[in-house]
Simulated assay, not measured.
Amino acid sequence: MSHTERASVANPEQAEAWNEGDGRHWVAHRDRYDEMMKGISSHLFEAAAIAPEDHVLDIGCGSGQTTCTAARGAQHGQALGIDLSAPLLEEARRRAKGENLVNTRFEQADAQVHPFAAASVDVVISRFGVMFFNDPVAAFTNIARATRPDGRLAFLCWRKPLDNEWITELGAVLASYVPLSGSLDNDGPGPFSLAASGRITDLLHTVGYTQISVDPVDEPMRLGDDVNDVLDFVSQMGLVSSLLDKADEETRAKMLHALHERLGSHETAAGIFLRSAAWLVTARRPGWAPDIETSER
């Protein structure tokens, strides 16, 4: 039986995606994604304010960069990274071992249903890993239960697609050739499910968080060195590759040429950059939480 089959999963479609094409793409381009997220990640860790003794939970840890950063901050504590993707977790464990981080653990788990020890972590973080739940209320209730009274939550999630140049530039080109089926900007599981700040606030209030703050963060993302490098990368991304696959050979060639032209307009001596727009969300678990039991570390 595979790791995926053993894990308790409430979001099977996401588990399938991240254990197959999406997960393999992130593993293949680990260093590129780390570079793309570098600027925006600094906001997350400043807000999380991880202390040396903290126990940190990283939701949707991917290939482990954020978990390893948390572990270095919590040098006398521990960082636990969880993700649905076995390929990404394998990469994360390799990274932690290479960095000799003995206070780091990784588990294949779905945060919506995983039986975390109650009140066992001081800080919960996530870099774009909390937008994919079928039932966000259940998921954040479970995450809150794992957090100690007065514990902290800090995460990044994307704002609207139209606010994100990395979406609008690629999408505008592709839409000229094939219909963009469905909407990225909706409440269902997906990268933009928490794009509305009011939805975030209502959700966290519902599950009992206090001191909720939702602040905009805008950072350029470096997609790669030059046009050919970036075109090869983006053409393998799930959203782009699925649209390319819908086209016949002639149309596909035209789409790739148009993408090449559009990306070229953003090329600089330092590489190709497109703007990103996210929410930085912080909140606290109430200091008095009678519904959870404090666990021993």
Rank of each mutant, 00 (worst) to 15 (best):
S2I: 10
S8L: 15
N11V: 02
P12D: 09
Q14S: 12
A17V: 12
A17K: 12
W18I: 07
E20K: 08
G21I: 11
G23W: 00
D31Q: 15
R32W: 02
H43Q: 00
L44S: 01
F45K: 04
F45D: 00
I50R: 10
H55R: 14
H55S: 15
L57V: 07
I59M: 02
S63E: 11
S63D: 08
G64Y: 05
Q65Y: 14
Q65W: 12
C68N: 11
C68K: 03
R72N: 07
A74F: 06
G77S: 12
G81H: 06
D83N: 14
A86C: 10
E91N: 13
E99F: 04
E99Y: 05
R105V: 11
F106K: 03
A111W: 03
A111G: 03
H114D: 03
H114T: 07
F116S: 05
A118W: 08
S120K: 15
V124F: 07
I125E: 00
I125W: 05
V130H: 01
D135Y: 09
V137S: 05
A138C: 05
A146S: 15
R148P: 10
D150V: 06
G151K: 09
G151W: 02
A154E: 01
F155Q: 01
F155D: 00
L156E: 03
R159Q: 15
L162T: 11
D163V: 04
E165F: 01
L170D: 03
G171H: 09
A172E: 12
A175I: 01
L184W: 13
L194P: 01
L204A: 07
H205Y: 06
H205I: 11
G208C: 01
Y209K: 00
Y209E: 02
T210V: 15
I212Q: 01
D215I: 15
E219T: 14
E219P: 00
E219C: 13
P220R: 07
P220L: 04
L223V: 10
G224I: 04
G224Q: 07
M237E: 15
G238L: 06
L239W: 12
S241D: 06
S242P: 03
D245I: 05
E250G: 13
E250K: 14
R252W: 01
K254W: 07
A258P: 04
E261K: 08
R262N: 11
A270V: 02
G271Q: 02
L274N: 06
A277K: 00
L280H: 00
A283F: 03
S295W: 06
R297C: 10
